[in-house]
Design a protein around this nucleic acid. Structure first.
Lengths: 233, 233
DNA sequence: AGGAATTTGTGCGTATGTATC
DNA sequence: AGATACATACGCACAAATTCC
């Protein structure tokens, strides 16, 4: 009897594979078993497994070569667990980390776009690092309706994982707009660009599983060291 | 008997739908027929049609709602034919256009990353507009092996369409890196930012159907008016 | 309010084509 | 040339979300 609260098998499978890669049980460059063998092993239909593999490919973790096999891409060890994180060092890669600078529940300011159902929002400010290097400042507004309070301790490195585990919120889609904007003036952090200096800028509007806008975030990144990466098609 | 040179049906179907939208035969906001009815109409299996629809969704042309239907998204009239174009006006949308500033066949300079098989490359410089507004400067290096010469007349508004029709080159994947960089000094064009000023910057490495790197391009965009857009998952 | 009908999502299994080894 | 492996395509059954009556 199927569990109605369970995720689709292809999502479960993709996440399982990501964990295997992150844990090092699947090594970079390694070829996966043939799809049919793997599907049989996992008790899945081939098509279901293929959907999971396509997901990993879109996230840049896997390279699929017809007639040859499926190969773990370099950089995959670090990247996978941070599903939607799209910043990397100019030289490539970097392990994403985050320091929480502050969390507050506030009335949403008027300059934010409309998102979520509540008048209130949780404002989370973080310093993002890549392999320890200060890479970006991040201000996240989570709609107030998903949790009465958000504490520092609720926020693990992977924010979307926290949302899921603590608040039952599933971020499934997001739209990013990338441009330039001046660095905000938040005192007391080691971000290398001065307040007011031009930096790379990402605005994101995220939606939950039901398609409702749930979160709005702004990220300022150090363009000397960091790039925003998108893989198309 | 199937034609081995033909594209997959799901690609043909996706392109057909894009043309229908661009031509206005499918209106923005309109709901498509149910998938099963549509598949029967087109002589396709439902799964094949669904793959085409998933493609349109990923490009931002279609919104799919379980239990409800498939709806043409606003902005889709313009966007679809320019498959990989990811710049839009800050206010949203804008019809992409291009003025060719120059085309030359040159030895690839040393500061470009390695791509393609040839020592030579075609350097194409264009001014991109959105609904007439000068939006970006673009320098494209197409590997020399795909064509002996490239003439101005070979380049229609949609470059990837030209590649396909003139040179038999299919761009199927690309990787974008977005950051900031100073505007290059190309005399005599109406790009609003001065040479040396900081602008949005997109580096792209594109691959052909066989997975070979085929093209490298750099785009400087006016961050006051333009954003780079990515839709995730 | 609530149940039936409609519509998309997930999952399975299979057959055949095409690229690679 | 043959074997292997991924890609495309088909068709079906049932689940979940939405809409309609």
């Amino acid at each position: 009897m199927p569990d109605p609260t369970a995720l689709p098998k292809y999502v479960q499978t993709a996440e399982m594979l990501i964990r295997e890669i992150a844990a090092g049980r699947l090594q970079v460059g390694e070829r996966l078993p043939p799809e049919r063998a793997m599907a049989a092993e996992l008790g899945l239909a081939v098509g279901t497994l293929r959907k999971a593999l396509a997901d990993l490919e879109a996230r840049g973790l896997l390279e699929r070569r017809q007639g040859s096999g499926n190969y773990i891409r370099s950089g995959a060890e670090d990247a996978g667990i941070y599903a939607f994180f799209r910043l990397e060092l100019v030289g490539g890669g970097g392990l994403p980390q985050a320091d929480v600078l502050g969390v507050e529940r506030l009335v949403k300011p008027g300059d934010l776009p409309r998102f979520g159902a509540s008048r209130m929002g949780h404002r989370i400010r973080r310093l993002r690092r890549l392999s320890g290097v200060p890479a970006a400042l991040e201000e996240i507004w989570l709609d107030g309706s998903y949790a009465p309070v958000v504490r520092d301790a609720d926020l693990s490195e992977s924010l979307y994982l926290s949302y899921r585990k603590r608040f039952g919120l599933w971020i499934t889609r997001a739209e990013d707009r990338v441009g330039l904007a001046p660095v905000p003036d938040w005192a007391g952090n080691p971000f290398p660009l001065a307040a007011g200096a031009m930096a790379g800028y990402v605005e994101r509007l995220s939606r939950d599983g039901a398609g409702q806008t749930a979160e709005y975030s702004r990220t300022w990144f150090d363009h000397e060291r960091v790039r925003y990466v998108a893989r198309l098609k």
